[in-house]
Design a protein around this nucleic acid. Structure first.
Lengths: 250, 250
DNA sequence: CGGTTGGTTGAAGTCGCTCAATCGCAGTGG
DNA sequence: CCACTGCGATTGAGCGACTTCAACCAACCG
């Protein structure tokens, strides 16, 4: 896990040019506030598959995901695991005020983190309402996502679960690329079958079977194992049980 | 649904004497801040079983639960429902900045709400860091609870789900009454079998069967349908799959 | 008394899990 | 170049946990 120098091209060249400048905790900060954040921050890269933080670890830092995808997962003693959060670029890791980690943080792909030493960051929260406000907003969004997810976990069938996940990833991707909902949507799945299973509370075999079934029924098409093509987003939403006609989802 | 006058004895006699003074959004407020909150607040009672807010309703207020229990639930078009939040005294209803409700809010028991008109409350959040800070803390707690719940929904068996729910209610009750963990714990279940099923992603029949099974196995004892006696809290935690010896749960 | 509400119990069915074999593909090293 | 290995994914067969459908019970209430 080679730590790379700050000058490496994969890192933002100053906060102003940062890719997540307008999504992360710092998005509301003024230039002078960014400068103060700059003093307590450092970048860190983690390879796909590595665990960034173990449950119970002392938290020396909090962080923003700059690029790549990470997951928050919980594990029971007998090995059953459940993903409880999917961290995309801009998302925040860590809870201010908390000494030790409540979940494992695992790098799903190679990731770059923008880390802040915890104590100084906590002080900044108190002094900088812009950070606290943005953090509240982000936390409320995560809570909404968690609750939508609870409906998926508790009440949806395996097929609906898969369709829901695909719809979420498709939606995020569409938001990024500003695609319309009418056209074909396509994207790469950032998760292995096993990770999808951990996300959805299924076994990886069931995930595989249901994806095959959706392909057989022409709800989706596949190119290779990971590239998904959605010919009709409405149809996919329908399969997800997410309402057939109310279109205010995007 | 009779609105009762502010002088009724069930309402707190001023914020200083309020039962949830030290748990609600206002817990960090100074006397002068409480006075300003007082100007935009009013009490409201709702009978058990009534829906306080429907998904999509325009939110004219946010509120704290003063007494009783309410639930946040999501419903699919075909009627499947999943509870996504259990609101106890002190808990907060509504999301600042959001125009319309994202979930149904249903009174599980008779409840009393301390409501704040939304717009003035949102202004206060900006001006009063004490409120924003507390709200952030509460939201982070709810997010943790939601994530624990996701593990329950996604990975636990029916028996473990029931045991988990009982453990949670028992823990909350113990915290209230300051009972030790070694002694017998007993409490009233605030939920019907159907509400428990909606909480846990089960059918009410399965809930009933698993409660009978836990009783048969002497993990719990019942007095009537609702009063639960837990002879050995450790045993219950074990049945919940929540770790056998790590005792840092309370 | 009949009606309603919440709860229990039984029998049959099914969806998703478990266990296991097989496959495709990318390295990797002889 | 091919054989070997490892990993992710697919597919099949059988099973079991939970659901579905249905009957029944107890308490409460007009």
């Amino acid at each position: 896990m080679n730590e790379i120098s700050l000058k490496s091209s994969q890192f933002p060249n100053g906060c102003q040019n940062c890719a997540i400048r307008h999504q992360a905790v710092c998005s509301r900060c003024e230039p002078d506030e960014l400068e103060r954040l700059d003093e307590i921050k450092y970048y860190r890269t983690v390879e796909a598959g590595q665990t960034v933080i173990w449950t119970g670890d002392r938290m020396e830092f909090v962080a923003s995901v700059v690029s790549g995808i990470a997951s928050l997962t919980q594990t029971m003693e007998d090995g059953r695991t459940q993903m409880v959060g999917l961290l995309l670029p801009g998302d925040f890791i860590g809870r201010p005020g908390r000494e030790s980690a409540a979940y494992d943080v695992i790098a799903t792909t190679d990731i770059v983190l923008c880390c802040f030493r915890r104590k100084p960051f906590e002080n900044m929260i108190v002094q900088t309402p812009h950070i606290a406000q943005r953090l509240l907003e982000m936390t409320l969004d995560e809570l909404d996502a968690a609750r939508e997810w609870m409906l998926v976990l508790g009440r949806k069938t395996a097929r609906e679960k898969i369709a829901s996940l695909l719809a979420i990833v498709a939606r995020r991707n569409a938001a990024l690329k500003l695609q319309g909902t009418g056209e074909k949507i396509q994207f790469d799945l950032p998760l292995t079958r096993e990770a999808m299973a951990d996300y959805l509370g299924l076994t990886l075999e069931t995930v595989s079977r249901q994806i095959s079934a959706l392909k057989r029924d022409k709800v989706i098409a596949l190119e290779g194992k990971r590239h998904v093509i959605v010919p009709d987003y409405r149809r996919l939403l329908n399969e997800a049980g997410d309402d057939s006609d109310g279109g205010m989802m995007m």
